[in-house]
Computed example of a mutant assay.
Amino acid sequence: MTAVSFEHSRKPHLGEALFKTLLYIAAGIVLVTLGAILIILFLSGQHAFARFGVAFLWTDQWDPVRDLYGAAAPIAGTLASSAIALLIAWPLGFGIAYFLTETCPKFLRTPLGIAVELLAAIPSIVYGMWGFFVLAPVMASSIQPWITEHTTWLPVLPSEDNPLWWWFQGAPVGVGLLTGGVVLAIMILPFIAATTRDVLLTTPQLLKDGGYAMGATRWEVVTGIVIPAVRGSLFGAVFLGLGRALGETMAITFVIGNANRLPDSFYAPVASIASIVANEFPDSDQGSLKLASLFALGFVLFVVSFVVLALARLLLRQGRMAA
């Protein structure tokens, strides 16, 4: 009797059927929970969507006195701070991951890897307090004035007529868009570094050895062999970090300035969706248009984060299948 016929003839075991049913129930609970959160946010924010329509997404007013609300400013602050965080954390995360997998001495790989991953275990409020009491004064006294002084010599910023020029100007108050981006970069760094390390470990060693055998330098092996082999998964690691940055609340609330305005400078105080919800929610009356607008902001953030994380999982899965 073949293995296939044996499987078909074997009677189903009660414990196996029960275990399979429990797995389906567990997976269904996750889907039902996500769907319930999405529906509750949408229904709770329906008053705002009905009042402002789709224009809610690109209106930058937030005036509780006149009951005028728009999501453009917090959406722009969320995207801008997350973009700054990615620009800082992506190269650092890839460098850390490559060092741990290729050049780090073997006796240091495990402790350094654990140290990087422990950054993810630090509570976000601790990052926020550190950013407000330590990083923000340093940004105001040293880093922001230095950036303003030295960026005036960049050829792409010759005068005030260039719109980019204003992004490097402003009062060095410490808290603001740039400080928020730096804190977010530190927070998402362990996620990007750990995921990138796992991705780099999937690169076939034969490919790298073949490159070195043909006389390629370490840089040529990285850029010509390693990165092309795992490109999709590397983007997946970045999107995982982006998803973490988009939803951060307490840390960004401490250091972003919480000014509901469109960002026009790296030093300007702005707000993110999460910080607006955290600051405004306690003062919102039940059933008010303001509370509905906050739920609408939460719905927008949920959808954006879900799409980003789903795309990250898709890229990581494609990278593993290709490997």
Rank of each mutant, 00 (worst) to 15 (best):
T2K: 07
T2W: 08
F6E: 15
E7L: 13
K11Q: 15
P12S: 05
L14R: 12
L41D: 08
F42L: 14
A48Y: 08
A48R: 06
G53P: 08
V54T: 10
Q61H: 11
Q61M: 07
D67Q: 15
L68P: 01
A71M: 05
P74M: 11
S81V: 05
A83W: 14
W90G: 00
G93L: 09
F94S: 02
A97V: 00
A97E: 01
Y98E: 03
L100H: 03
T103G: 00
T103Y: 04
K106D: 11
F107E: 05
R109D: 04
P111T: 06
L112E: 02
S124E: 10
S124V: 12
V134F: 11
L135R: 01
P137T: 03
M139S: 14
A140P: 01
S141C: 11
P145F: 14
H150L: 10
W153K: 14
P158H: 07
D161A: 14
W165K: 10
W165P: 05
W166L: 06
G170C: 01
G180V: 02
P190S: 07
F191A: 13
R197F: 01
V199M: 07
T203I: 14
P204C: 13
P204W: 12
Q205D: 04
G210M: 02
G211D: 13
A213F: 03
E220C: 01
V221P: 05
T223D: 09
V226M: 11
A229D: 13
V230E: 09
G232F: 04
L234G: 05
G236E: 06
G241Q: 10
G241F: 14
G243Y: 15
L246E: 04
G247A: 10
E248T: 03
E248L: 09
I252R: 15
N258M: 13
R261A: 09
P269A: 12
A274S: 15
I276D: 08
V277E: 05
S284D: 07
Q286A: 08
L289C: 03
A292N: 09
A296D: 02
V303E: 14
V304A: 12
L309I: 10
L311V: 15
L314A: 09
L315A: 03
M321P: 00
